[in-house]
Design a protein around this nucleic acid. Structure first.
Length: 465
RNA sequence: GGGGCCGUAGGGUAGCCUGGUGAUCCUGCCGGCUUGGGGUGCCGGUGACCCAGGUUCAAAUCCUGGCGGCCCCA
C-alpha cells in the first residue's frame, strides 16, 4: 500500500502510530499526540545542537505582528498577503492596529534587531527560534505537509557586515542542513529556486527537496539570501571600522514539520513506522514471553536486563498481561521501535536474549554478556542500512532527460534549461510539473530543452507537494 | 485557479438511488473465562447517522447552506 497508494498509507500511519490526532475541527490544524511529539522533539533537539555548534543562539519573539511592520517590505507582504490571519478585536473592541498571526517572523524580529545592532562588533549575529506560524492555506491541507498552523517552524536569522559574509552564511546553512538530514538519513537534492518561486523579499532562495514514495518532491528546508532588502526598510544599520554606516546583509533559513513527515514517509514500510535509534521515543522495547510455569523467572530476568540497558538506552518494558506476545510484536513494529528484545524460558536456559531489528525484521540470538556491545554495532548498522536504502530509492526516482517528449511525471527530471523565466514557465505549462530550480551541485553542457540555447545549467522539474 | 467524490460508534464500513423494521458487519474499548515464542478462542457488554435550515404524516436517506475530509486537472 505504501507504494501504490501513498496518501492512504500516510494517513493511516499518522493515526495508527499515534503521531497526530487529525480530528480537530478546524481545517489544517492537528494535535500532536505524546508519541509523535516525542519524535518531533528528538528531531528538534538534533537541529538545535547543530545550530548551537555553528554559533546560533536561541530567541523567542511574539506571535502577533502589527500591520505596519508586516507591510514594511513590499515584496514580502505581497507574497504573504493572501495567507495572513488577522486579529482585529480585543474582546468587543476593534483594535486600532490590526495584528497579524506571524506567517513567518522576519517583520517581527528585524525592527528589534535594529535596536540591538550598533557596530560591526555586533556582527555577525546569528539567532534562531522554534515557533508556530499561521498561514491561511487555500490548497489541500495535509498533516505535517501543508498546515494552517505550522507547529514546528525553526527559523534562523543572521546579520552580516558584507554581502560576501552573507554568501558565506548561505554556504554554512547548506552545511548545517546537510548534517541535519544526513543524521536523519533523509536523502535530498539542493536546488536554487527560480526567481518566480523565491521567498518574497529575498535575492534568491536555495531549497532542499526530497522525494516521497509516490514520486512527488517535498521541500524540506529553504535558505534565503536577503541582501539588504529587509535591512533598508527596517533600518538595521551598523557603524563600520572607518566610521561610516551601512545596512546589514542578511540571510534566513528554516525547516518545519515537513521534516517529521519525511522521516515517516521515507523510512516507514507496510508494517508502520521505522525509526532511527536517535529519534525513536524508545530505542528498545523488551517483551517478556510469559508462560504460567516460568512467569516468575522470566519477569525477574527481564527486569534485570531492563534495568541494565536503561543505564545506556531509552528502554520500554511491555509488561501487559492481557496482550499476547504476537500482538505486542505487531504493536511495537507499527510504532517503529528500532529493536525488540524477547526474553522467554528458552532464552534464559541458553543464557541469551532474542533481538529483533525493525528495519530488516531479522531475529538474532545474542549472548547475555555482550548485549551492549552488540546493540551499539546494531544501531550503527540500522542507521547505515536505512540511509543507503533511502538514497537508493531516491536516486532511482531521478532521470536525466534530453527532450520534452521524454519527460516523466512520476519522477524528478534533470534537464538542461537556459534559466530564462519564459522557458521555465513554458515548461511548467506544458508538462504540469514544477520547476524546482537549478541544481547547485551539478553542471552539464547541452542545450536548453525549450529554446535550444547552449547552456551548462541543469534544472530539476517534478510534481511537488 | 477549475472540476469531481464523500461525511453513519474510537477506526473501517452496509444501508441512501426508490424516505417508514430494533441502523449492518469487522475492528477497538469494558467485564469474565481461556490462551500465551507472530494479531488465542469463546461468552457478555459499550458505542454512531457532521452542523443549521427546508420539504414531508415521517429524513441517515431528498433539497439549500455551512463546516470538515479526499481525488483529479491546470
Amino acid at each position: 500500500m505504501k507504494d501504490n497508494n501513498f496518501s492512504e498509507w500516510y494517513n493511516e500511519i499518522i493515526e495508527k502510530a499515534e503521531i497526530l490526532d487529525v480530528r480537530y475541527p478546524v481545517k489544517g490544524l492537528y494535535i500532536w499526540l505524546p508519541y509523535g511529539l516525542r519524535i518531533r522533539n528528538n528531531i528538534i533537539s538534533i537541529i538545535k545542537q547543530i545550530l548551537e555548534a555553528h554559533g546560533h543562539e536561541e530567541v523567542l519573539f511574539p506571535l502577533l505582528i502589527p500591520e505596519n511592520l508586516l507591510r514594511k517590505e513590499s515584496e514580502h507582504i505581497k507574497g504573504f498577503e493572501e495567507q495572513v490571519y488577522w486579529v482585529t478585536k480585543g474582546g468587543d473592541k476593534e483594535l486600532n492596529v490590526k495584528l497579524a498571526l506571524r506567517p513567518t517572523s522576519e517583520t517581527a524580529i528585524y525592527p528589534i534587531v535594529a535596536l540591538w545592532i550598533k557596530s560591526h562588533k555586533d556582527l555577525p549575529l546569528k539567532i534562531y527560534q522554534v515557533v508556530n506560524v499561521f498561514r491561511y492555506e487555500t490548497k489541500h491541507t495535509r498533516p505535517l505537509i501543508r498546515l494552517r498552523e505550522i507547529t514546528t517552524f525553526k527559523e534562523a536569522h543572521t546579520f552580516h557586515k558584507s554581502m560576501e559574509e552573507a554568501e558565506e552564511q548561505v554556504k554554512e546553512a547548506i552545511e548545517i542542513y546537510k548534517k541535519f538530514f544526513d543524521k536523519l538519513a533523509i536523502p535530498y537534492m539542493i536546488n536554487r529556486r527560480p526567481d518566480w518561486d523565491k521567498f518574497p523579499g529575498a535575492l534568491y532562495t536555495i531549497a532542499f527537496d526530497t522525494i516521497f514514495p509516490d514520486g512527488r518532491t517535498l521541500q524540506i528546508a529553504t535558505i534565503h539570501n536577503l541582501g539588504q532588502n529587509f535591512s533598508k526598510p527596517f533600518d538595521i544599520k551598523f557603524e563600520k571600522i572607518d566610521g561610516s554606516f551601512d545596512h546589514v546583509y542578511q540571510t534566513c533559513y528554516g525547516i518545519s514539520d515537513r521534516v517529521v513527515a519525511s522521516v515517516i514517509a521515507i523510512h516507514g514500510d507496510k508494517d508502520g513506522l521505522v525509526l532511527l535509534p536517535d529519534i525513536s521515543p524508545y530505542q528498545i522495547v523488551i517483551v517478556p514471553i510469559i508462560y504460567k510455569d516460568s512467569k516468575k523467572i522470566v519477569l525477574e530476568n527481564s527486569m534485570e536486563i531492563y534495568k541494565r540497558l536503561s543505564k545506556k538506552y531509552r528502554v520500554y518494558i511491555d509488561l501487559r498481561e492481557d496482550e499476547t506476545p504476537g500482538s505486542k510484536f505487531y504493536y511495537w513494529e507499527m510504532k517503529g521501535i528500532p529493536l525488540r528484545i524477547e526474553i522467554g524460558p528458552k532464552d534464559i536456559k541458553e543464557n541469551v536474549v532474542t533481538i529483533f531489528r525493525r528495519d530488516t525484521k531479522e531475529r538474532l540470538k545474542v549472548e547475555n554478556d555482550s548485549i551492549e556491545k552488540f546493540i551499539n554495532d546494531l544501531f550503527n548498522d540500522i542507521y547505515n542500512n536505512l540511509r543507503s536504502k533511502a538514497w537508493k530509492r531516491f536516486e532511482e526516482k531521478i532521470v536525466r532527460i534530453y527532450s520534452l517528449n521524454d519527460i516523466k511525471s512520476g519522477c524528478v527530471n534533470e534537464i538542461n534549461l537556459c534559466g530564462k523565466d519564459s522557458c521555465g514557465k513554458y515548461l511548467e505549462d506544458k508538462t504540469g510539473l514544477r520547476v524546482l530550480g537549478e541544481a547547485i551541485d551539478k553542471k552539464e553542457h547541452g542545450s536548453c530543452i525549450v529554446c535550444k540555447e547552449l547552456t551548462d545549467k541543469i534544472y530539476r522539474i517534478a510534481k511537488s507537494y
